[in-house]
Simulated assay, not measured.
Amino acid sequence: MLFAHDTEMALRGAAALVNTAPTLPTDTEDLATVADLDAFVRQWEWTGSRAHDDTELASVHALRPRLRQLWTAETDQAVELVNALLAEAGALPQLVRHGEWSWHLHATPPEAPLATRMAVEAAMAMVDVIRADELARLRVCAAEDCEDVVIDLSKNRSKRFCDGGCGNRANVAAYRARKAGAP
């Protein structure tokens, strides 16, 4: 394991959140309603209070472009973004344990707004990425028709495609191209 479990989960959750936003003209908004956000929060096991309203949804929407910047930022810019996210939230890291999770870090109280908790969790995970000099593990999907972000947690740093099926489509296209060129 490259990072602690909570760091990996925060990175995966941040990538999933970023990838809910439409980035191409053919994309759709994956968090169009409060119900969509509710399902996303349940899927990624976010804890703490919730407003369950359009204001909360808008705050989460506003967070996504800021988190997307982390996937393409150089180290100095990533540090500035992380520090800004942590400062805006008044983050105060503390060890907590709840549910099935062992000891891990939270840096906001459970009653903080959802978007704030999401921002701080992503920023705390990015602290580990930056300190380990592993920003190269953050990338954009290599498929020509996809702009989703990818967190490469593989040992050999080989993940190039998102989890949306782009790798499979690229492999099928390469196979067909090879077959078309074969006698």
Rank of each mutant, 00 (worst) to 15 (best):
M1V: 02
L2R: 13
F3E: 10
A4W: 01
H5N: 11
A16R: 08
A21C: 04
D27W: 01
D30C: 08
L31M: 08
D36W: 03
L37S: 11
A39S: 14
F40N: 10
R42A: 15
E45A: 13
W46D: 06
T47D: 15
G48H: 05
R50F: 12
A51R: 15
D53E: 06
T55Y: 00
A58T: 14
S59F: 00
S59D: 15
H61Y: 04
L63W: 05
L63S: 06
L63D: 05
R64K: 11
L67E: 09
L67N: 07
Q69W: 00
T72H: 03
D76H: 07
Q77Y: 00
A78H: 05
L81G: 02
A84R: 08
L85R: 02
E88S: 07
L92N: 10
L95H: 04
V96I: 13
V96C: 02
W103D: 13
A107W: 05
P109F: 02
P113S: 06
L114R: 01
T116D: 11
A123C: 04
V127T: 15
D128C: 02
V129A: 04
R131D: 15
A132T: 07
A132Q: 04
D133V: 01
L135M: 13
L135C: 13
L138F: 06
R139K: 11
C141Q: 04
A143W: 06
C146P: 08
C146S: 10
C146F: 10
V149H: 07
L153I: 13
N156S: 14
S158C: 07
R160W: 05
C162T: 13
G164A: 15
C166V: 09
R169I: 08
N171Q: 12
V172N: 10
Y175E: 08
R178K: 14
R178M: 04
A180R: 15
A182N: 11
